[in-house]
């Protein structure tokens, strides 16, 4: 599928920035997304083709603006909703309740 993800040969992407002694996960949530996805993947809830398809449907601006594990999160959420495992309303309601719990 054509798309922004097909980056080979693109120009003017800027310098390659390297980080010394990089941690495996820069934020705790990155590890959680990785772990959740990996577990569901290993259990056969979805496969690598579904992962690729979901990532390749991301809009170009969104794809470029977000980090690697944000891509994973996007894919994970997309697949969970499309597979009928969770509904978007359920996710939004849970976020709202977590937010309220955090504020109180």
């Amino acid at each position: 599928m054509n798309g922004i993800h097909d980056m080979g040969g693109m120009q003017c992407m800027g310098p390659i920035i390297r980080e010394e002694n990089e941690p495996q996960f820069h934020e705790e949530w990155e590890g959680r997304v990785f772990g959740m996805f990996f577990t569901n993947f290993a259990e056969g809830h979805f496969n690598v083709d579904m992962f690729r398809h979901a990532i390749e449907r991301m809009g170009p601006a969104e794809y470029l603006e977000t980090s690697y594990y944000e891509h994973w999160l996007h894919v994970y959420e997309t697949v969970l909703v499309e597979r009928g495992i969770l509904t978007q309303a359920e996710i939004d309601a849970k976020i709202e309740s977590l937010r309220q719990a955090g504020e109180s």
């Binding site: 959680r32 959420e77 996710i91 849970k94």
Partner: peptide, 16 residues
């Protein structure tokens, strides 16, 4: 901010 993303992840983990 990152906390928004973290919240989103937490919501998925809690629901599942």
């Amino acid at each position: 901010p990152p906390s928004e993303t973290a919240m989103r992840v937490k919501a998925l983990e809690t629901l599942l």
